[in-house]
Each structure stands twice: as C-alpha cells, then as structure tokens.
Design a protein around this nucleic acid. Structure first.
Lengths: 293, 293
DNA sequence: TTGTTCTTGTAATAAAAATTTCCATGCTGG
DNA sequence: CCAGCATGGAAATTTTTATTACAAGAACAA
C-alpha cells in the first residue's frame, strides 16, 4: 500500500538520484526525462510518458517500481503532492504582517527611491548612443570584453553572463589583477570593451581602459553622475544616477540599463541568437546526461 | 475535437474567470477549488477532484465541458501544457517586435516594464520576513555565505561584495563546483546561507542548500514566482517577479530587494559598520601607498 | 398547489489506462 | 560458438477511470 521506508528521498527527484545507479539503460532514459521536465512528464499517462522518453510502457512501470512506488497512480500522487506543497508555499506564507520599525515602511520607501532613480536615469540616456552601443555588442565579428571595479564587478559579470548566451567571443575580466595583461593582449582594433566604473574610480580599471582604447578598441562606459575618467577615451558613455537619498548607493539604474541593452541586442539578432541558444541547450542536455551515468 | 475558439482565455484559470458567471452553484465549487490549488486539483482523477470539491463526478465533467474542453483528458492536457511552459525556461522566447526607429521608444518601454516589475514585487514582500532576514544577516556571530546559479551568480556576488563591507565572516560560493564541499564544511549550525535560484532551478544549487539546511544552517532564498524547490528547506523565502512581458528576464526586482536588505542591515548596525568601513579605508590607503612606491 | 425546468447525484456502461505475461533480442562468460 | 541471463517491447488481460443515462429533488411561475 504505502511506499516502503527504505526509499530515502523526500522528493521523487531525490529518489531518482539515489536510484540512478541501479537503473538499466532504458530505465534511465525516462528518469532523466522526468528530471528535465519535472514534474510534468510524470503526470502524463504511462503511454505519453513512454513516448516522450522513447521507451515502452512497461519500462516506465519498472522504473516507478524501482523507485519504490507500488503503482503508477501512487507515483503520480507523490508528484502532485510535491507540486502542491511547492506552489502553495509562498501564498500561505505571506500574511503581510506590517512589522516595520516605527510608522515608516522601509521597503516601500526604498522602492520609491530606486524607482525614481531608474526613471530619471533612463530618461536621460541618449537614444542614439544606446542604439550604437547595442550595434557594437551585437556584432559577432568583434570580440567583447567586460570589466568592472570593486563593486561593479558583479554588473560586469551580469552583462557577461547574458551576452555569452547570445553571441560567441565574450569574455569577463576577472577580479585577479594578475590576469589582466592577457585580456589586453587579446583585444584588437575594433573590438569592444565594456567598462563599469563608479565614484571612487578605480585606477587600475581606468588604466586598463586607456590601454585598450590606445589599441583602437571601442570602449563603452557605464558610470555614475560623477563620470569616470574613462570617459576621456570612451566611444559611448552612459551616466546614470546611483545615489539614493539618505542611503546606500544603488546599482538599480545601471542594471536596468544593462538589461535594456541585452534585450536590445537580443531583439536585434533574434535569428542567430535563437539557434545559438538552442545549440547551447542541446549541449547542456548531453553534458547532463553523461554526468548522470 | 479541438477546443472551440470561442473560449477566450489562454490559460485554464482565465477561462474559469470568464465563465464563472455562467456556472451553476455546484459547478462553481470545483472551479474555485481549482483556482485555489492550481493546477494540482485538476490533475487528479475526476473522482479525487470531485471529492476535494465536495461534488460528484459528473459535475466535474459538466464544468470542464462548459470551459470548452471536449474531454477530461483534454482539460488535463491543457493544464499540463501550461505548467510545463511555465516551469520550463523560455529557452527561445521571441523578443519584442523589433522596435527600431519606428515610433516606439525601446528604453522607455523597458523602463516602464521593469519599474512595474519592481513595484509589484516589492509590494508583496512580507515585512516580517524581511526584518527577520536582515536580522540574520546583520548578526556578526553568524557566518554568512551566498550562492547563486548560472545567471544569478552575479546577484550572489553583488550581495557578497556589499555585505563584506559591513561585517566580517562573509563568503561567496564560487562558480567552480569543485570548491563547494569546503564551503559546506564551514557552514555550522545557525550560520546563514543566502541562495539565489530562479526558474530552471539548478539542481546542484538545490542540493547545496539542502545539505546546508540539514546541518542546521538558516537558509534565505531569493527566487522567482515559480519558487525554487529550495523553499522546502528555507527559513525565509522571497519570491519576486522576474518575467517581463515579451522580453528577456529581469533581475531588477531581485537586485532591488537585495539592495534594500543591504541598506537595512547597514542602517541597523550603523555603529559597528561605520568603524569597520573606516578601518577598511585605512588599510586600503596603506596598501595603496606601499604599492604605489 | 401543480406543472415545468433546471440541478445534481447514483448507478450503469463504455473507454482508456495500467499491469502482467511472454517471447525476441542482445550480451557475457565459458 | 553456445548456454544462460538480463533486458525491453508487443500483445493480452485486468483494473481503473471517464462518460452517459436517468431519476430524484429543488426552485420557480402561474
């Protein structure tokens, strides 16, 4: 009746991982299929699931049996239970208790400030510069390198991670200064360097940008209203507001602009980006499969 | 055969809302039951669903018929399709129709979307959870470790870089999976792990969080509206909106929340943070001097 | 009240699905 | 090269599940 206690995993996914070693080749196929489109695949009928995984019905049943379920219905029930507890967690957990300090609502105030910040910043972005920068970033023939300072390194990384999905030949300059010369070496005439640099402008970053620019590399600069000295050598400059009244600094506007650029590039090169992402997806799946063994 | 076109809603939930007026009293019961535990209730058998809603089987079928499905199987298929398309990353979602120089303002539209995103997300953050999380992050006695997935790694890094200024004993889990065990080793009971995990939830990250939680570590989760499975072991869950209409995903809301948390911690421990930052400044100056020579 | 219509559940029936049986196939070791 | 064994699918069988037919009961109008 009930599933035996010997099966360790709380979730079906966990059970699969624990059992993967004991599965035969064609039992492993639906197992991985399920993990890939979890948990939908398992909520279909046996026949549908079997077709999706490219095996026969009985194989599905042998799999669920090995996972410790005494029937396919029991297996599905487990999946539904999981799904339900997962999807309902946030709803039941949000009784919106207003436990802010005294009267003021910290989150509300912060939101208001950051939103204003983003709006004023974005309003001031010169449209032509934006389009030009997007054009540079979308051009596959150009190598693209991103670099950031102490804090802005995370923004450089964010841009890097997303651009990398859309096009080849993108690199991120790490935070280890020692590796920087190699990056400079690779940057050629007409390549693109994206620099994030805000007040307390970092000298090493400025130097890096200057050297790159000297070699004929296009420099796109994201900076704050104090404008980094990199501007002197940059081809496109985007200055946004980072200061919040009476608080810490915020990268909100800078991230918004960066994301807008990514979206712009994405829209521009939709065709090639799509096929690239699909290939990427394919490769990932294969890697995952192999790893599963 | 196919569902008729007269039925407006793209999603089953929408269809229900549009049809609610035309339903009888006892048809309305399962309809609302479904909306309450969506979509799990509808994935059960007719009998189970009927029992859950307190009606008979045929009433369920009359309901699905009125919703425009020609069979219960078709109804379930629609629910599964929805679920799958939402749980699965939009591997290749077409971007907004190329909004070149034609009338539309790309930046303006994007700004509007992201601002709306941030506002709705932040409004839903439970204040008490927020305060509790800030309390944990501000507590020097606890070690704090941040971790992110493929894309969200940059957010984990952002939080790490800022927290590090405010307090000691903060670490970032790198993107090299090989180094992860060491981090787990260091995490003790009552320490704090901050996890960033969005749709296409990453299995290795989930496993990491689970192991940490098993050891008694507090887990703070930043996720999207589809809620990472990490939620099951998390002490505090923050679900924000990451989807932008017809575009790439946006981390804007997640970053805003993360920054709000940082600001909160900063405000809370103003005294100690200030002296820490001053000492840090001192050290930096010395290092810079030495290096400058 | 009484007839009519609209709801809704019970029970019978049909359809579909899960499960089992059994045999073909391919692999391993002697 | 063959015996023995593990594997996996086709087809038969059984069970479950959806679906339909029908009748009881409620709501309403005249």
């Amino acid at each position: 009746m009930k599933e035996e206690a010997e099966f360790t995993g709380r979730s079906v996914a966990e059970r699969i991982r624990n059992t993967l070693g004991r599965l035969t080749a064609s039992e492993r196929r639906p197992a991985l299929t399920l993990l890939e489109s979890y948990p939908v695949a398992g909520l279909e009928t046996v026949a549908q699931f079997a077709r999706r995984a490219g095996v026969s019905g009985p194989t599905i049943l042998r799999l669920t049996a090995k996972l410790g379920f005494d029937s396919y219905a029991g297996f599905q029930q487990a999946l539904r239970d999981e799904l339900e507890s997962r999807l309902q967690a946030p709803l039941s957990k949000a009784p919106v208790a207003s436990t802010r300090a005294e009267g003021r609502d910290f989150i509300g105030d912060y939101t208001e400030a950051i939103v204003g910040n983003i709006q004023t910043s974005m309003a001031q972005i010169p449209r032509a510069e934006f389009e030009a920068a997007a054009g540079l970033l979308g051009d596959e023939k150009r190598r693209v390198v991103t670099i950031g300072g102490r804090f802005t390194h995370s923004l450089a990384q964010h841009l890097y991670l997303h651009l990398r999905e859309l096009r080849p030949r993108v690199a991120l300059v790490g935070d280890q200064t020692a590796t920087w010369p190699e990056h400079l070496l690779d940057l050629a005439r007409n390549d693109v360097l994206v620099v994030f640099d805000i007040r307390r402008f970092q000298d090493d970053v400025v130097q890096f940008a200057k050297q790159a620019a000297a070699g004929g590399t296009h420099v796109i600069l994201f900076t704050d209203t104090w404008v980094s000295p990199v501007a002197a050598v940059a081809t496109h400059v985007f200055a946004v507001e980072t200061a919040l009244p009476s608080s810490w600094e915020s990268f909100g506007a800078m991230m918004a602009l960066s994301e807008a650029l990514i979206a712009r590039v994405h829209a521009e090169r939709w065709g090639s980006a799509k096929s690239r992402m699909e290939r990427l997806e394919q490769i990932r799946r294969n890697l995952f499969r192999a790893e599963g063994q």
